[in-house]
Design a protein around this nucleic acid. Structure first.
Lengths: 188, 188
DNA sequence: AAACTAACAGACAGGTCTGTCTGCTAGCAA
DNA sequence: TTGCTAGCAGACAGACCTGTCTGTTAGTTT
């Protein structure tokens, strides 16, 4: 309660938007949940879309941070890091209230011409660029393609995690990643 | 206009729901687009959810049919079929107005305890069972795991196709599939 | 003390949503 | 003719949506 209003709004929005999708949550609910006046919310976020974008920024920081942390934890070899980032997927799917990739979910309900959609594309692009860089350092034959394949697995895993509590799924994704990395980095 | 009312409703719902998400389309819009009376719609589909479920059934038939057709077109060898089904992904992403996996999109905006969510899980389960069967016939070491990995790639590709018009993505997915199939079916 | 800022509380407008209900028309069967 | 079914047209209720606006309270700066 002692946090500044902006933070309280974002906290509530994060929780509610992720659980029900931005379109499934009314501004009034965010207000009630954050204990903030309506005028205050609209002062910080003039349109609901602004709040959604701020929400996506927060998701971006959190998820990208987890990916990098998982990669770093896997050691110094870039090939291990490419595989290790899939540990972030496993943790995410295990988390209570896991509901898939916030970006994909939000983009699904928004106009392809909207800012929200653009922000999603940007997020995925940044992540893939980072993976591409790792793949380059791992001396993959075609770093861009390997990065694309790994992010496909990642996004697929994020989607599958919602639909199926099967705990072996992230492990299968990780194993597939290892196979792809080894194949792409083998000096033949 | 001469089609029975039920078909006209479903046609309009299919188009509108896929483009904007079921939650993004009002019943009134479906009515206007299908040229049907409101009472008629509610006679065939007492709740909006019933219409959404019918929509998902139609999507299931269409997508699963395309997957099987693509696999069949790849020849008799089950390994080729496992790879060949990715041609359905490429066609789907190329299609105008492509908007990702209708099931994932719909599930993203619906309660995890809802019928809609359950139907999505069912769809993904049925597809994966079919892929598992193919993997078994391909003599994969662990058919269930290979099927899981391939469907992860498939779902990832469906998501990526919305966010990025990059035409090489489906090809990268297919290449990854080939690598995974070859690795899983190699008698070592 | 005066002015300014941030925030709270909540009414309100104008629109959209789902779902119900009343009436009307047309074809078909007994 | 009588009754049944399928459908069209559209009003209506009640809830919920975003965004605006008025007015009040408390703390800080000048």
């Amino acid at each position: 309660m002692n946090q500044p209003a902006r933070e309280r709004i974002l906290d509530a929005a994060f929780r509610l938007f992720y659980a029900h999708g931005p379109r499934g949550v009314g501004v009034d609910t965010v207000i009630a949940e954050s204990g903030v006046a309506k005028a205050t919310l609209y002062k910080h976020f003039p349109r609901k879309d602004d709040l959604i974008l701020a929400y996506l920024d927060r998701v971006d920081q959190a998820w990208f941070g987890q990916l990098r942390a998982a990669a770093r934890a896997a050691g110094d070899d870039p090939r291990d890091q490419l595989v290790g980032m899939f540990d972030a997927l496993a943790s995410a799917c295990r988390r209570d209230g896991y509901h898939g990739c916030a970006f994909i979910n939000t983009a699904a309900e928004s106009d392809p011409a909207s800012d929200v959609h653009a922000r999603t594309v940007e997020h995925k692009t940044v992540v893939r660029a980072w993976v591409t860089d790792l793949a380059r350092r791992a001396r993959a034959r075609d770093p861009g393609r390997l990065a694309r394949q790994l992010t496909l697995l990642l996004d697929g895993g994020l989607s599958a995690g919602v639909l199926d509590a099967d705990p072996t799924t992230p492990a299968a994704a990780k194993a597939a990643a290892r196979t792809l990395v080894e194949t792409a980095c083998r000096r033949s």
